[in-house]
């Protein structure tokens, strides 16, 4: 099949970018979206042009490195997958696809579709850890944890920090990311010790990094490739409220 791409091209942080149109032919439905971009890049290189820069690593949907907006949807139209796991069979012959980087002032564009997500690292540094010696793998049930809590914590921990929540939010809010990180620790005994400082520090860093305020539209949970629920945001609000008033 044939698709037309309108790709955001931007040389570096300081220049302004624009959309460039490319026709890509002989696209197989079994190709991943990135394999299709690889094919386009090969032809651009052979023509002496700059290839399109985009972030990727595992290409298995687990690392959280990749992520572009396709026709306004973070990670494309398919629910519960990262861009690397999106295949061209999700599109039709003759489709026009607008491919953009994550749009947020806290995620400045470095080049083309690559954005700087250091702001997420700073939020993690502010409290996304436990300050105890964890040692080796503990024996099962050495610390009794209710099944429901363990499941909830694992659901929250499945956040891969890709930034799709920020990209899909009209306010570029990072509340789903921070909510998932705060929840995963707050639900487990090892994380409860530092829950107060964690909620206060991670929210303060999130605000300092220039992310917007959550409007509770729920767009983030729709676009999250790991289908993290906005219940995590409700829990973050509770954690922050309790930490502020205690």
């Amino acid at each position: 099949m044939k698709v037309t791409l309108q790709v955001w091209r931007q040389k570096n942080r300081t220049t302004t970018g624009d959309f460039v149109s490319y026709d890509v032919e002989n696209v197989s439905g079994d190709m991943s979206f990135f394999e299709m971009l690889d094919m386009l890049n090969n032809s651009l290189i052979s023509e002496g042009e700059d290839p399109i820069s985009f972030d990727h690593d595992c290409r298995e949907g687990i690392c959280g490195t990749c992520g572009v907006s396709i026709n306004g949807r973070a990670h494309g139209p398919l629910k519960g997958v990262t861009t690397c796991q999106l295949h061209m069979r999700s599109f039709s012959d003759g489709d026009v696809l607008v491919v953009e980087p994550w749009r947020a002032s806290a995620f400045p564009v470095i080049r083309d579709l690559v954005v700087d997500r250091t702001s997420f690292d700073k939020i993690m540094e502010a409290g996304g850890y436990v300050s105890i010696k964890t040692g080796g793998t503990p024996d099962a049930n050495a610390i009794p944890i209710p099944k429901f809590d363990a499941e909830e914590a694992m659901d929250s921990a499945s956040c891969i920090g890709c930034g799709a929540c920020v990209a899909s939010c009209k306010n570029s809010s990072a509340m789903l990311f921070v909510g998932a990180k705060v929840s995963q620790f707050a639900l487990l005994p090892q994380g409860k010790v530092e829950r107060k400082e964690r909620a206060l520090n991670m929210v303060a860093t999130m605000d300092d990094e220039g992310f917007g305020n959550c409007s509770n539209t729920g767009a983030c949970e729709v676009e999250c490739p790991k289908e993290i629920s906005i219940i995590n945001i409700a829990r973050l609000n509770r954690e922050f409220f309790k930490a502020s008033f205690n």
């Binding site: 309108q6 306004g72 607008v98 002032s105 806290a106 306010n171 539209t217 729920g218 767009a219 729709v222």
Partner: peptide, 16 residues
Amino acid sequence: KSSPQGNKVNSGTETA
């Protein structure tokens, strides 16, 4: 200020 440039294509009511 946090979201100075939106997407070229607005996903509209698909997500919210």
